[in-house]
Design a protein around this nucleic acid. Structure first.
Lengths: 253, 253
DNA sequence: CGCGGTTTTGAAAAGGATCAAGGGAAGTGG
DNA sequence: CCACTTCCCTTGATCCTTTTCAAAACCGCG
C-alpha cells in the first residue's frame, strides 16, 4: 500500500524549479523593494576568500545579503567531518530564515561583497510591510525546497548523478547571467565532495569519467566546458527519463 | 527580546528538540493560541493508515494539524525511488511553511486524527496577529533545522549511526510523554529505510547487530526495548565523543 | 626553478546493495 | 480454533560502488 504508483511518478516529475517563478504579488514586490532599500543603507563589506562571516552557534544578530561572490554554508559534525549544506550566490540572503542562532558557518569561497543588517532592523523594517506571510516566507521556502532536493540527492543518487546534478544546477544559474559554454566552478574539489556527500577522489574520478564520455571537460581547476548539457541533465537523475538511451549513444565517445 | 522560558509548552513547542527552548514571547504565545483556536474551529477527520492527506504537486489550499498518529512526508524520484523527508507526530503542523504547491505527499503511517484549515484563513487569521515574523517562522524553522540534521545524517553517517540517530530521536520525543523503556516504532522497515537512505535489508541487519550488542532489543515488529540509551546516543554519532570507549565496553556482549 | 598544496590516478578494502530464500506474525476463511 | 495465505521481516551469499591508503602529476607561487 505504500509502494510507489505510476500515478505518483508522473505527477511528481516537475522538478525543483518550483520556486524560480514563485509568486510575484504586489506585496512581494513591494517587500522586495523595501528589502533592497534596507540593505542599501549599509555599506558593502569586502570579505576575502576563506574568511567566515558568521559561525554556527553564534547568535544571529545580523543577516547578510551576498552582493558578489560565492559563500559556503556548512556544519562540522563530530570529528571534523564537514557537511556543506548549501552554496550561496550573488543576490542570496543569508540568515533570513533564522531565529536565535546560526545553524551553520558561512565562509567565503571566493572574495565576496556583502551587506549586513541587524536582525532587529530587518524585523522592524521589513516584516510589517505585507504581512500575509508571503514575502517573509520566500527565502525560507527556497531554502526548504533546496534542502529537500539535497536530501533526495544524498539518499538516492550515485556519484555520477550527484555530480551531474551539481554541475547542471550551477550551469542553470549561470545561464541566467547569459554566457557561453564555459562554466566557472569557484569551489574546490573538497568543497564539492563535502556538499555531495562523496570523497574528493570520487569526485575527481567521476569528473574524469564524464570527460572521457565527452559530457563536460575540465579546463584548469575551476572551469568546466559544458559539451553536452542535455546529457548532463539526463545523467543528473531527476530529469524525465525518456531520452536516456539517446543520451548514452550521443555521449559515448 | 527573544529569551527562552521554561513554562508553557503549547501545542507547537513540544516537538523537535532543536527548538524545544525556542522563544516564547508574548507574541508567540498569543499567536499559538489563535492558532489552536483556528484549528479547533474545524472538526477532526479520521485518516486510516496508508491513506494520503495531500499529494506532492497539488496546490496547498489547506494545511493540517496532526492531532494524533504518525504521518510520513515523502517524494518520489525518477523510477519510483521514495525518499521520506520527514515523519510528523501529534501536534505537528503540515504545510504551514508552504506557499504554492505541496513539496511532498503526506501519508498516514498509523490511523491519524487531523484538523484542516484553508490556507486562506490561516493567512488571514494567524498572520496579522504578531507580525514581527517570529511566530510565522517557527514551523519553517523547525523544518529547516530538521532538514539540516537529515543532510548531515545522509552525507556523513554510516548505517549504524543513522539507525541509532533515528531511534534516539524517536526515543527522545517519547520521553516527553513519560514512559518506560519500550519504544513504539509505528513505521515499517521500508519506511525507516527510505528515511535513512538505506535498504530494508541493511536496516534489519543493523538492528540485529544492535540487539546482539544489547543496545536495543526488538519486541515484535513495532516495539523496541531501549536497553542502553547512553550507548544509543553515543553510537548516533552526533554526540560528544568523550564516552565512546566506555560505551563500547559496556555494550559488547 | 623548486616547493607546497591541490588534484588525479591506482590498487586494495569495506560497507552496502542486490539477489535469493527462509521464517513469522497477522489476517482470512473454513 | 486451526490451516492457509500473505505480507513483512530476517538471514545468507555475492557483487558493486565508493572509500581508503598511497603515490604520482599538476599547478600556481614565491
Amino acid at each position: 500500500m505504500c509502494r510507489p504508483t505510476t500515478r505518483n511518478t508522473t505527477m511528481l516529475m516537475q522538478k525543483n524549479q518550483v520556486f524560480q517563478h514563485a509568486e510575484m504579488t504586489e506585496e512581494t514586490i513591494h517587500a522586495g523593494q523595501s528589502l533592497s532599500a534596507l540593505f542599501l543603507t549599509s555599506a558593502t563589506e569586502l570579505v576575502p576568500a576563506g574568511r567566515a562571516v558568521c559561525w554556527e552557534g553564534d547568535e544571529a544578530k545580523h543577516l547578510f545579503q551576498l552582493v558578489e561572490g560565492v559563500i559556503r554554508l556548512y556544519r562540522i559534525v563530530g570529528d571534523g567531518r564537514r557537511v556543506i549544506t548549501a552554496f550561496q550566490f550573488a543576490g542570496d540572503l543569508i540568515g533570513a530564515s533564522l531565529q536565535g542562532d546560526f545553524l551553520f558557518t558561512a565562509e567565503a569561497v571566493t572574495e565576496c561583497k556583502i551587506r549586513r543588517v541587524s536582525r532587529k532592523s530587518f524585523d522592524d523594517e521589513v516584516a510589517p510591510v505585507g504581512c500575509s506571510s508571503h514575502r517573509i516566507h520566500l527565502p525560507a521556502l527556497r531554502e526548504t525546497a533546496a534542502a529537500q532536493e539535497q536530501m533526495v540527492l544524498l539518499s538516492k543518487k550515485n556519484a555520477e548523478e550527484r555530480l551531474c546534478s551539481f554541475i547542471a544546477k550551477l550551469a542553470s544559474r549561470r545561464n541566467l547571467q547569459a554566457r557561453q559554454s564555459v562554466l566557472r566552478v569557484p569551489m574546490s574539489r573538497q568543497d564539492i565532495a563535502d556538499h555531495l556527500g562523496l570523497t574528493i577522489e570520487t569526485v575527481s574520478r567521476t569528473l574524469t569519467k564524464l570527460a572521457s564520455r565527452n559530457v563536460v571537460i575540465p579546463e584548469g581547476r575551476h572551469d568546466l566546458r559544458i559539451v553536452n548539457l542535455a546529457c548532463l541533465t539526463q545523467l543528473s537523475g531527476d530529469a524525465d527519463d525518456f531520452l536516456e538511451e539517446s543520451c548514452h549513444r550521443v555521449s559515448l565517445h
